[in-house]
Design a protein around this nucleic acid. Structure first.
Lengths: 304, 304
DNA sequence: GCCACGGATGAAACTTACTTTCATGAGCCG
DNA sequence: CGGCTCATGAAAGTAAGTTTCATCCGTGGC
């Protein structure tokens, strides 16, 4: 097992912009200024010369080049071209939806709904676009052949972890998730070769989750990280890194788009695992559905 | 500078490629060779350097520049960027997304990802579209002025319930959610006028949730139902009904799109509530974020 | 047939853009 | 408080793009 996680350097099929904003926190301050300009208006950036862009970002050309390299480009010209292409593709934002920004103070419910759903949907789409099928495949493979699967997450990511655990469990995989660190650590210590440990953290900096993942890895389990930031600490403890692409409206507003993005990844993995053995999975799903049938009341004649 | 050819300067409506091939015959032989290369593969041309392209067209750089001017560009860099943009736009649509349907048996991960995310994103968008702002407003109002809020859900909807509870709690509302029916029933029995009870059930037929909601209502609490089916049993016990619009890929495949749709509604209500008292909500969010700060590891900066 | 003329063309000079190197200085760890 | 690492921009160096200009070739007039 390779020790360095696959950040899929050259693989950012979905969006370069998405890729860049994911990398943003791992960039140096000066590079971040450049990145922000680029993300804010890719088309405009593509039009600028390197000197021009450097000046606009209040830095030197050298830093712009470094930025190019940091996001996986060969040099500035390549970045320019990619940006132009990217910008052309995303001619979409037609209406004045508050993209990525905060909710304006005087907003009414209709505005709030439009903004939230737009950002949520976008997070889902962009996450899917930049998800690397090859890495997913390997993770699915690991899960399918795992003796035991453990999923870790804290706070909002904890619900996602539980959701994943529940899904895996429903199709007959032996999966666990934990409400607290101690239990998780204890359990992780009992993992071994062939087991799978999945850590979920939007920021990639949740020490509890990192710690548990580290523990799991030291016991020989295959480790997977699910985070929004491909260069965050958690990725160093993971054999496989899966990234989401959520730009939270406001960082502290409680996870909103981020957990939807995480759940989308969970869905993909889940279906991927289920698809490996359709018959068995289907049977399991039917059995479990049957089990709760008596907890449903009849005529839901839905004709929505 | 009077001698340059007068071609429709900067405005070539249809497409740059179309434009170029249109005036191809009016170009000099050497320029035509360049033009043909460009038209044949714009994306490739965009990647080439001027020297490279000149060589490929068996001509000199000077001619390439002349060609740029002939088609109305300022210079080679501009042409490059326009070409990249053009190329990006024209290969977009042919995307074999598996819409709405089930995942085909032989599907690979890339297909799965496309299908899932498409349906997930759609569920979010469609839910937002049909969500009634007026009803949301009333629910928000009820939550804001509630003495206590309880959220019920079973299975996958249980996670959504917990998520909502956690969010409300974070902004200082007194909210609860429950892992089992008994506790929930007990708690619901203690609700009274001015309290709010929210029941979440995708199918709208989960008897446990219905039962608890009924209990809450009988105690005078305001009841809210969140379901995908506006005519389902749960709606009969609710003062306010909020609906999601998820079409699950496969009914029994475990809730996927449905919970994303539910979470979107949760997000909207949450932001709606938070917006009612920005200052207080913001302060609460900051305090809670600070509380977990020591559980985050710092410097995510790294270079590959 | 010879000679002006003009457009097309590429070589080379030139300019600008891009890239690398290196010295500096800030922050961090022991 | 040294001795590190790392981020950064100035400046040197290289490559890309642009201009200039001499040449070439075909044309048409004499």
């Amino acid at each position: 097992m390779a020790k360095s996680p696959k950040i899929s350097a050259s693989h950012e099929p979905g969006g370069l912009i998405v890729h860049i904003s994911g990398l943003l926190p791992s960039l140096s301050p000066a590079e971040q200024r450049v990145a922000r300009l680029v993300v804010a208006d890719p088309a405009d950036a593509a039009r600028r010369t390197i000197t021009d862009l450097a000046t606009a970002a209040e830095t030197s050309e050298a830093t712009v080049i470094r930025f190019c390299r940091s996001v996986g480009m060969d040099g500035y010209p390549q970045l320019r071209i990619r940006l132009a292409a990217e910008a052309a593709r995303r001619i979409e934002p037609p209406d004045a939806r508050v993209v990525g920004g905060d909710i304006p103070p005087g907003a009414d419910l209709a505005q709030i709904i439009a903004t939230i759903s737009f950002n949520d949907a976008r997070a889902v789409e962009e996450t899917a676009e930049q998800l690397d099928p090859a890495v997913c495949e390997q993770v699915v493979e690991a899960i399918v052949s795992a003796g035991r699967i453990e999923v870790y997450g804290a706070g909002a990511s904890g619900f996602v972890a539980s959701d994943f655990q529940q899904k895996l469990h429903r199709i007959g995989r032996i999966a666990f998730s934990f409400p607290d660190v101690h239990t998780a650590l204890t359990s992780a210590a009992l993992l071994g070769k062939g087991d799978v440990a999945i850590g979920i953290s939007h920021s990639g900096t949740t020490s509890d989750v990192i710690e548990v993942l580290e523990q799991a890895r030291s016991r020989g389990a295959v480790t997977v990280a699910l985070t929004n930031f491909p260069r965050s600490p958690i990725t160093e403890r993971a054999d496989f890194v899966l990234t989401t692409a959520a730009r939270e409206t406001t960082y502290r507003s409680g996870a909103m788009a981020s957990r939807l993005a995480q759940l989308t990844v969970v869905d993909c993995l889940f279906v991927g695992v289920a698809a490996r053995n359709r018959a068995r999975a289907r049977r399991a799903l039917e059995v479990t559905a049957e089990a709760v049938r008596t907890h449903r009341v009849g005529g839901s004649r839905r004709r929505s």
